[in-house]
């Protein structure tokens, strides 16, 4: 399946792009991260400290073990700093 993957804040800067289409067989968000990290150093670096990464699937916050079945959009970002 193909999902649109979005990156925000310093994750976007480290990876060097804001969004991309990713074709994957990953079952969960965590599996997708493993695939992305294996691609290139910039991905590996961006995901090296997972305590600093949050995730949303289809614009809803989820844990990393969330399933990807039927998901169209996955976003990775640091902890939010609104207000």
């Amino acid at each position: 399946m193909t999902v649109q993957v979005l990156y925000f804040a310093w994750l976007r800067e480290r990876i060097g792009l804001g969004r991309e289409d990713v074709t994957t067989d990953a079952a969960t968000v965590a599996d997708l991260i493993v695939e992305l990290r294996a691609r290139e150093d910039r991905y590996d670096l961006a995901f090296s400290d997972m305590t600093a990464v949050r995730c949303a699937v289809d614009q809803t916050l989820v844990d990393l073990d969330a399933p990807l079945d039927g998901v169209r959009e996955v976003a990775f970002f640091p902890p939010m700093t609104g207000g």
Binding site: F8, A9, P78, M80, T81
Partner: peptide, 23 residues
């Protein structure tokens, strides 16, 4: 809730460079 559950990220820019504001 808005502080840590709304998807905003702040970056401070000074003459010496820029820094993402940590949660």
């Amino acid at each position: 809730y808005l502080k840590s559950r709304a998807p905003f990220w702040k970056k401070e820019v000074t003459a010496n460079g820029s820094t993402w504001v940590a949660s």
